[in-house]
Design a protein around this nucleic acid. Structure first.
Lengths: 350, 350
DNA sequence: CATAAGAGTTATAACGATACAAATATGATT
DNA sequence: AATCATATTTGTATCGTTATAACTCTTATG
């Protein structure tokens, strides 16, 4: 209509209506000082011209980027975890002015690097990080530098901050209880790497469960759920071939691919050792998928909803940016979706 | 040093050196008109002050966003695919000024929506899309609107554009050849959804392979590799229970989770039908992981390197933005990493 | 010795938005 | 009718950058 081809700006609207640019700007933001009639007219015209505020202009003037950065470890191979997380965050961002930005780092380099970069270049209004440690230097840095953030996992640094965490302690207790119920007595835990916060939760829950049911632990530290599928497979096979092998296993991970694909690795390792799940051994595992699992007749599954985690993290982070109190931005998700009964084979028609 | 706490700008450098802002700007860009001595001094000072150009200022002035948008289908559950793709793109973007932005859409809504949004708001300098159709309206739109892009998959619209594609025709032929070699005669193809370009490649390759080896096709259209794990599982079971069941299967997908997790679904479906892979039937499948697969003793695997795809797409897109000729920006990846021999069980030490 | 040419540098305007202060219009008050 | 208060609207400066055109020196040229 006006100035063919080029994007409409505040000025476009202003001249179209014979108003000042400032008036238009304020009208669009519903400034009380602008008369209702003008406001309506401006909004009308804005809609008609398909006006969209320029992110560049906005960003330059206000300093707000309208960007949320998800900082990811490139070694992280738990594909379903990452994609679910991303889509969850996006669901939270939908309808907000925020865009999602993904920033990589290598866990072999300094994990602080990407955080520092984003903060220094003011590349985002807020950051989401995963793989949280009890004393996490990234958290310290962001607090010190006043950068809003949310963490997938908790810290123990004496500072409150937005987080979402799956209650892994509860998970481990539930898992042990289930194995006890099945008559299992000697349990092994495939634990997370011990520098991560949720390692501690997991172990506490596991040990507490053992105590509650008077069960015995079979030490298993050859691998963590963060090792490669092949490594876990071998370790499991060795474990099941050893004289004091466990009759129950708790798998603290739920991935199926690459590093962290402990679920598949377990299957393969047990098969290698000629151990049949459900007979010689029972396994309780997490599962990160949204859909019903395939192997439900073998594994006992507790579902961890990573998409929800992403959603909550996104929401919490925006809340934090908006200055909402921290207490409202912390979620500890209790394991609810549990698939312990062994269902019959699916019917022919579905 | 100067103006404590606030980020250095061109002005900071300029005043520090008693120069004009313009001079500094041009010096940093190595303008020939600026004397070598001045240039050196400016760069020195820039480094000393840890100067980083403001993306906002740059973007406002030049119109360049330095953002690449990856547009993803939120129903896409092939977790390993998405995460590998993302990390691949990031590897390509590393060292460039580009950031990666992820934009979601629902395949049930208009797939054009996010493309239009990004184009209209000038949210990115270029777009990467997946799930390409032979006549893809998104491609048409981006060409018409002069938005640089790269596609994961090819189109057949009579226009050249940057793309990366895995040679699925070659894959299918190789797969059929392998099954023929194993003495299989009656083959089924678990194909991609037939609106996607690679469905055609896959079928051509499959049919051509059948012809080449004088084999027979067992029609299998109940599901595509895009269905849910449960659906594929049921369909496979039914297929294997039917009187004219195949003795060889080609799986055109390589995912293990959610929609597209055909690999696991196959395992489960065959087990449901009491069919043993390697005995009653042989299966050639793609595999999207980077690491060695767990099930190599059962499946015959052709590896598709999605991370490489991401890397090439990122590089091609930047090339396109920089105006390089399209011919240089098209890659058809021949399947190379093939795991057909059935290796012995892995040794105890590795 | 004036002047032109070239080298190097810089002021100004602009990108699109908002904060602030100033200006105008409207209506009420005396 | 003049003045004041209130309700609206608007001009100016600014965020950090670059394109354009103008400026200031040298140095060479006739």
């Amino acid at each position: 209509m006006t100035a063919r081809g080029s994007k409409p700006t505040l000025k476009t609207i202003a001249t179209a209506l014979g108003l000042g640019v400032t008036t238009v700007s304020r009208a669009l933001r519903d400034d009380e000082k602008i008369s209702p009639r003008t406001r309506a007219a401006v909004k009308d015209m804005a809609r008609k011209l398909a006006y969209r505020p320029s992110r560049a202009g906005l960003r330059l003037r206000t300093g707000k980027t309208n960007v949320i950065s998800l900082v990811l470890d490139t070694e992280e191979q738990v594909g379903s975890f990452i994609s679910e997380m991303i889509f969850g965050i996006m669901e939270a961002l939908d309808g907000t002015p925020y865009h999602l930005n993904v920033t990589p780092y290598s866990r072999h380099a300094d994990p602080l690097d990407p955080i520092r970069y984003i903060t220094e270049t003011e590349a985002a209004d807020g950051i989401i990080i995963t793989r949280i440690e009890p004393e996490d230097p990234r958290v310290r840095y962001m607090i010190d530098n006043n950068m809003p953030f949310a963490t997938h996992g908790r810290t123990y640094m004496g500072v409150e901050h937005p987080f979402y965490d799956f209650d892994n302690e509860a998970f481990a207790r539930i898992a042990v209880a289930r194995l006890a119920e099945l008559g299992r007595r000697r349990l092994a835990l495939l634990a997370p790497p011990d520098d991560l916060s949720f390692h501690n939760h997991m172990r506490h829950g596991f040990l507490r469960g053992l105590e509650e049911h008077g069960l015995e632990e079979v030490p298993f530290t050859a691998v963590t759920n963060d090792n490669s599928i092949e490594q876990i497979r071998h370790a499991i096979r060795d474990l099941m071939r050893s004289p004091d092998r466990p009759d129950g296993i708790v798998n603290s991970s739920g991935g199926v691919s690459g590093t962290g694909g402990a679920l598949l690795a377990l299957m393969a390792g047990l098969a290698d050792a000629d151990v049949v799940m459900g007979r010689n051994v029972d396994v309780v595992t997490k599962q990160l998928f949204q859909r019903l699992p395939v192997f439900r007749d073998a594994f006992h599954i507790v579902h961890e909803d990573v998409r929800e985690a992403g959603r909550e993290l996104g929401t919490a982070l925006i809340g934090s940016i908006d200055g909402r109190p921290v207490e409202d931005l912390q979620t500890l998700a209790v394991p609810t979706r549990v698939l312990f009964q062994r269902p019959e084979l699916p019917s022919d028609r579905e």
